[in-house]
Amino acid sequence: MSMSSTRAKVLMGAATWGVYLFLYIPVLILVLFSFNQARTGGTWTGFTTKWYTALAGNGRIISATWNSIQIAAISTVIAVVLGTMLSLAIDRYSYRGRKTAQQIVYLPVIAPEIVTGVSLLAFFSLVIGALNDFLGRDAGNAIRMGKATIIIAHVAFGAAFVALTVRASLRNLDPAVEEAAQDLGATPWATFWKVTLPGIMPGVLGGALLALTLSLDNFVITFFVSGPGSTTLPIEVFGQLRRTISPEVNAVSTLIFAASSVLLIAALGIQAGVATRRSGQVTTVSSTPEEGVPDQ
């Protein structure tokens, strides 16, 4: 019988490594073939970095990358400010309608992207149409969807995810600490900068990285609210890979994959660093054992 539990463990280990292979093999093959000589197909014909060199001269990819970075940077900054404010409003105050406000704030987390995309398309075209009529612009100089509409959309879901992440940090920050600061004469504004914000920094940083990544990676919503001249990197790549299978697409995908891995590891590193520094402080500060807390 104990034999079978050993066998179960071996099977479980095998299944686990199988799942990891499943998660990584497609991506690794994609990366591998970005260094392949042959222009088409999945046959290895020799190592080259020429597809990466070609990318450097691909104006469409470069301008799409630049668009993506601009959009992600602007929308992340706004989303972090709005999201942090929202999390404070939801977690630190009690008032009528708080529950409803919370449900609206988390709407972007649960709403299917495709529905958001088409709804925003309908909404923006209505608003922009009305605006063009009002300003009397014709087809030649009409306002169109573009970077502005993309940023508006990205800020919305970015703020929701920031609020979610920051709230997790807020829950670990004892409100009594803030009350103590006010008790010692700090204004609410000073309390926020000197006590609350340092306390929730891991959440704010985590939320910022999440918002940045979500903005850089977003395809579906962006696809519906973009216009001419505002093509982002995912949309450009999508267009190219629908047209042809070229190792250049593999190369740009590899770079995207590498960039998001670096972002993730940086995010985890920052959070782990803050967490260990924090826990070091906690053990020295709180010397009283928590009495009456059950073991479970």
Partner: peptide, 26 residues
């Protein structure tokens, strides 16, 4: 969660910008 003593007037300012942005887009 308990509200800070002077909190009553702050929650609206914190809530309004983000909430209206998300309401407008969602």
């Amino acid at each position: 969660m308990s509200a800070p003593a002077a909190g009553k007037k702050y929650h609206r300012r914190l809530l309004l910008p983000g909430l209206s942005w998300i309401s407008l887009t969602y």
